[in-house]
Design a protein around this nucleic acid. Structure first.
Length: 800
DNA sequence: ATCATAACGCTTTTT
DNA sequence: GCGTTATGAT
């Protein structure tokens, strides 16, 4: 290489470097290492998403310009001079020329595949790319989840492996129903074969690419008859899905892998197409996804996986941490970059989290650091029970807000959804606005599923499963016995259920219900006929009306059905959202595809100013200034199932690490000495994770007073005692053996002026006695009218 | 066919 | 302790 070339390449790198001057050195390195396999270990809060976006932008702008010694065109001295001076003094006018000179085979948008774990993440990626590069460049990048990428691939080519391209997608609920049917069909007991467990076994088998036959053969050899039965269920399940022309979530990945493995033409097509493959949250991938990643990137091996082994918390759903741990072994000459500078939390929080995660053995090893300063120490608070815990958190949050904080800056994290109850209760009584993330999702609501089932059947009448869901909703006097009979006839004649229903009068067995069945079939066909002529939302309204579903809800007209009506209406909004995003395929089929893979609709909720409650799992990827992790007790967190299971315990510890690193400014951990869960009160020792936090990074706000004979609080000989004097909990006596505190109940009358620690000044509107307590309605000057329970909220109120 | 009562069972969750 | 579901009675 001549001197000119060397000078040019050096200048080119400097020009590209300065384009990403805002990134820190390892971040920039991660953006500019474009060629070959790259393992990017991105710690919590290390700016991973920023890197991802810039990486894609760089690929589109400069191709391998930053990571190659190629020079794609003849160059002159003048051009090298130009780049050298531009690197020092970039100007807007010279930018296009500089970019042109520095690019080496820039990737075209459709040559970049960026896989994320959720639709939300994919959407954000696409959105930020659009803002950075403009709509033209961004819209053709394959930024999607594994599943939507696979559906796209399968819709094109699944017929090459003997499936029909217009398959429907079964969600977990659908799968469960099929399993239940199979259990009945084989005359088995659901108790001996819990559908959930069966489903998870089938899912694991599919992940291992084990066919039903292979699975059954394996266990037949070992003489495990229960497993052989499960193999039968697996076989029947697959047969049912095939008959219904349906794929479950695992099939979507499995068949894509099979397609790419068996059909060389397709494999070559995609390996050639995707010059650059990027996979986010790699620690959460399962075996099939690992295979898929390898297949898609198999051409040029330009595969970049991003993840954090310390944040792998989805083992229970098949995530295999080995994928990320052994990535370096899988790819020779793999480069590894660690992002360890944290931009989110204070040093105290990071030190505490680092100390906890250090107790795990199977990890790559990373130590987060920050320039944010030490900040406040991590607070640990021990309370008596779950309602004291809730009141403590509520009181602490009100205090912050009183000092000018915002509700939305606070999050409460717990291990299980069931723990939200006590918190919600305390927050309601205190009049604190909050939202609970998770629980029953919008698309899991029965009424939403019903309406989607109508649309599915209209779109594809051979969808027996959905047909059965709605054939008698609203009631059309078609009972279970009739449906079973029709289903049997369909099986015998090798046609779908809808065909039998449509021609019911031809089957003597159905004569009594034949007219009603045919009427239903006519209804579906009538709607089906209009599906292509009407605009989508208009069509949906028509279906709501014509099916009688909305009328059924309107006639019921109680609290519940009013809510359901709203959800049915809300589905139209998501339809409109779909139409805005996807104007090129605004069909019913397109919408159903999207919806089958899309499950969270809580996007709008982050606008409200309120406290967030959620599980530690759902908190992954989020951040809040103030974070409370509640229920830090052995048996709760780590959960009972992890005791004595080293791998499970390490997973729980990673979850703890995830939870702790969500906090930006202040982290508070609480544990209760006894807790009621599932109707039973049990004493609990403080979580072992608490003891893993260095003394220097934490502060015990209070320690429990000894409860003597009532509670078996044995100090486990650890370095720290939990028997120091305790502060009295904020309110309420919690146990019978405790003296009931005669709470000095405030005497309030309508018209009086009061001041609340969090809501400020206000006037009492009404006081209504309620079961030894009182419901007070107060019109606050700043925050409007609120209803408060006097016993709880009284602590925070002073008369003026 | 529809309603009522009993029995169960219960991490975590995305697609 | 609660919500879901299965089964039996009307």
């Amino acid at each position: 290489m001549g001197e000119l070339e060397a000078r040019f390449i050096k200048a080119r790198r400097r020009v590209i470097d300065q384009e990403y001057a805002k990134l820190n050195p390892p971040q920039r390195e991660a953006v500019l290492c474009t060629e070959g396999p790259l393992l990017l270990l991105a710690g919590a809060g290390s700016g991973k998403t920023t890197v991802l976006i810039h990486r894609v932008a760089n690929l589109l702008q400069y191709g391998r310009g930053s990571d190659s010694t190629e020079i794609p065109m003849p160059i002159t001295n003048d051009e090298a001079d130009f780049l050298e001076q531009y690197a020092d003094h970039p100007t807007q006018e010279q930018k296009p020329l500089a970019r042109y000179l520095c690019a080496v085979e820039p990737a075209r948008p459709w040559e970049v595949l960026a896989i994320t774990f959720t639709n939300k993440a994919a959407g954000e990626l696409r959105e930020r790319l659009e803002r950075m590069l403009g709509e033209e460049a961004a819209k053709d990048v394959w930024a999607s989840t594994f599943h939507s990428a696979c559906v796209r691939i399968l819709r094109r080519d699944i017929d090459r492996i003997g499936f029909s391209r217009d398959f429907t997608i079964y969600d977990t609920d659908d799968s469960k129903r099929v399993i239940k049917d199979m259990i009945k069909e084989l005359g088995l007991e659901e108790k001996a074969f819990p559908p959930r467990e069966i489903l998870s076994i089938i899912s694991n088998a599919k992940d291992a690419m084990q066919s039903p036959e292979e699975y059954a053969a394996l266990w037949e050899k070992n003489g495990d008859w229960r497993k052989v039965r499960i193999g039968k269920l697996y076989a029947g399940y697959n047969r049912r899905l095939r008959d219904a022309n349906a794929l479950d979530f695992d099939d979507i990945i499995l068949h894509t892998v099979k397609l790419l493995q068996t059909d060389k033409e397709t494999q070559e097509y995609y390996q050639k197409k995707f010059r650059y493959v990027l996979i986010d949250e790699y620690q959460d991938t399962n075996h099939l996804q690992y295979l898929l990643a390898g297949l898609l990137a198999g051409g040029r091996k330009n595969i970049c996986v991003v993840g954090d082994d310390d944040q792998s918390i989805y083992r229970f759903r098949g995530a295999n941490i080995e994928n990320i741990l052994s990535f370096e072994k899988q790819y020779d000459h793999c480069r590894v970059i660690r992002l360890e500078q944290n931009y989110r939390s204070t040093q105290n929080i990071l030190d505490a989290a680092n100390a906890v995660i250090c107790h795990n053995t199977e990890r790559k090893g990373k130590t987060l650091w920050t320039e944010n300063g030490a900040g406040e120490k991590v607070t640990v608070k021990t309370v008596f029970n779950e309602s004291d815990e809730a009141n403590f958190v509520a009181g602490d949050i009100m205090m912050h807000c009183n000092r000018g904080g915002n509700w939305r800056d606070h999050a409460i994290l717990y291990r299980m959804n069931a723990q939200s109850n006590a918190l919600e209760y305390a927050f309601k009584r205190n009049g604190i606005p909050y939202k609970v993330i998770g629980g029953t999702k919008f698309f899991d609501r029965a009424e939403v599923k019903d309406m989607l089932a109508y649309l599915c059947v209209i779109n594809n009448p051979t969808d027996d499963l959905r047909l059965r869901r709605i054939i008698n909703v609203p009631s059309r006097k078609i009972g279970a016995a009739t449906i079973d009979k029709a289903q049997l006839l369909a099986m015998e004649n090798g046609v779908c259920l809808f065909d039998v229903v449509r021609e019911a009068s031809r089957y003597t067995e159905l004569k009594s219900a034949a007219a009603r069945l045919e009427q239903f079939a006519a209804l579906i066909e009538e709607m089906r006929a209009k599906r292509e002529t009407m605009e989508l939302t208009e069509f949906y309204s028509f279906v709501c009306d014509r099916s009688g579903y909305v009328r059924m809800l309107e006639e019921k007209n109680d609290m519940e059905s009013r809510g359901r009506l709203e959800n049915v209406e809300e589905l139209k909004s998501s339809m409109m959202g779909f139409l805005e995003n996807q104007p090129e395929n605004p069909t019913l089929a397109g919408f159903l595809d999207e919806i089958a893979l899309y499950t969270d609709l809580d996007d709008q909720s982050d606008a409200d100013n309120c406290v967030t409650m959620m599980t530690m799992h759902s908190a992954k990827g989020l951040e809040f200034p103030y974070v409370y992790v509640v229920g830090m007790e052995d048996g709760i967190f780590p959960g009972n199932r992890a005791m004595g299971e080293p791998e499970e315990m390490e997973e729980e510890r990673r979850l703890c690490y995830v939870a702790m690193t969500r906090a930006k400014e202040k982290l508070t951990l609480t544990n209760a000495r006894q807790r009621m869960l599932f109707g039973r009160t049990t004493p609990n020792l403080p979580s072992r994770f608490l003891k893993e936090i260095p003394e220097g990074n934490m502060e015990w706000l209070s320690r429990p007073e000894p409860r003597g004979e009532t509670l078996p609080w044995e100090d486990d000989g650890g370095s720290r005692s939990f028997y120091e004097p305790v502060e009295r909990p904020i309110s309420r006596p919690a146990a019978a053996n405790r003296k009931p505190v005669a709470a000095p109940l405030l005497e309030l009358r309508p018209g009086e002026s009061i001041e609340h620690t969090a809501f400020g000044k206000g006037m009492v509107l009404s006081v209504r006695p309620m079961g030894g307590d009182a419901l007070v309605e107060v019109a606050f000057d700043q925050v409007g009218t609120k209803k408060l329970m006097l016993k709880t909220a009284g602590v925070h109120i002073t008369k003026l």
